[in-house]
Amino acid sequence: MGWKSYQKLIHQWRILRGDNVMIIRGKDRGETGVVKRVVRSQNRVIVEGKNLVKKHIKQGQGHEGGIFTVEAPLHVSNVQVVDPVTGKPTKVGIRYLEDGSKVRVSRGIGASGSIIPRPEILKIRTTPRPTVAGPKDTPMEVVMERTYDPKTGKGMPDL
């Protein structure tokens, strides 16, 4: 949580990584950017190229020291998702389509009510799936082995 007192954590997040958001409070008010990272444990988001601060970093093994400009996290209440039709900041609601799929829609005063698409970056895995079997992986011939026959009842435990 950091040094601040306990905050109530958000359980249903409306802002996702890759969303186009507008900063509504702070020194970068009115500017838009893409959410680079979501820090759910602190209710904060990092917007690409916004809320820049100077950070003094001490020299260590493998990296140089100096003064660097980095993006500081913003509280989630200080940003809003941009409506894809009007281009204005809007609240995000959830609707279900006729086919049963769940979508995000823009809502609020002056909102178009249009669907806000999920960012494409969420489909890319951050850690790739392993392509070779590891030492703890079950071999495929053991996985595909048939251990129960429903017609004869072979493999059924005696109860």
Results as ranks from 00 to 15, higher is better:
residue 30 G to W: 01
residue 46 I to S: 01
residue 116 I to P: 05
residue 112 S to R: 02
residue 75 H to A: 04
residue 145 E to W: 10
residue 27 K to D: 15
residue 47 V to Q: 02
residue 66 G to T: 03
residue 157 P to K: 05
residue 137 D to W: 09
residue 120 E to Q: 12
residue 111 A to R: 02
residue 76 V to T: 07
residue 158 D to W: 09
residue 122 L to I: 10
residue 7 Q to P: 00
residue 31 E to A: 08
residue 89 P to N: 00
residue 77 S to I: 00
residue 28 D to W: 08
residue 140 M to I: 13
residue 55 K to H: 09
residue 62 G to M: 07
residue 30 G to N: 03
residue 56 H to Q: 11
residue 92 V to W: 01
residue 10 I to Y: 06
residue 25 R to W: 04
residue 3 W to T: 14
residue 94 I to V: 14
residue 159 L to D: 08
residue 22 M to S: 06
residue 13 W to H: 15
residue 73 P to W: 08
residue 110 G to S: 07
residue 5 S to H: 05
residue 95 R to E: 11
residue 139 P to L: 03
residue 36 K to P: 02
residue 150 P to D: 06
residue 107 R to Y: 03
residue 85 V to F: 05
residue 117 P to N: 10
residue 133 A to Y: 13
residue 72 A to S: 15
residue 113 G to D: 07
residue 126 T to K: 11
residue 149 D to N: 13
residue 78 N to G: 06
residue 98 E to H: 06
residue 128 P to R: 03
residue 16 L to S: 10
residue 82 V to F: 00
residue 95 R to G: 03
residue 129 R to F: 15
residue 112 S to V: 02
residue 49 G to C: 04
residue 143 V to T: 11
residue 41 S to R: 08
residue 22 M to G: 02
residue 63 H to C: 09
residue 31 E to Q: 13
residue 154 K to G: 07
residue 48 E to L: 10
residue 30 G to A: 00
residue 79 V to D: 00
residue 16 L to M: 10
residue 72 A to E: 15
residue 138 T to V: 15
residue 147 T to G: 04
residue 90 T to I: 00
residue 15 I to Y: 01
residue 86 T to I: 02
residue 29 R to S: 14
residue 116 I to K: 01
residue 57 I to P: 04
residue 144 M to H: 09
residue 104 R to M: 14
residue 73 P to H: 11
residue 143 V to E: 12
residue 23 I to L: 13
residue 61 Q to L: 14
residue 86 T to N: 13
residue 82 V to E: 01
residue 81 V to P: 01
residue 65 G to S: 06
residue 144 M to L: 14
residue 140 M to S: 05
residue 36 K to I: 00
residue 74 L to C: 03
residue 18 G to T: 02
residue 141 E to G: 02
residue 143 V to R: 08
residue 123 K to S: 15
residue 67 I to S: 09
residue 19 D to Y: 00
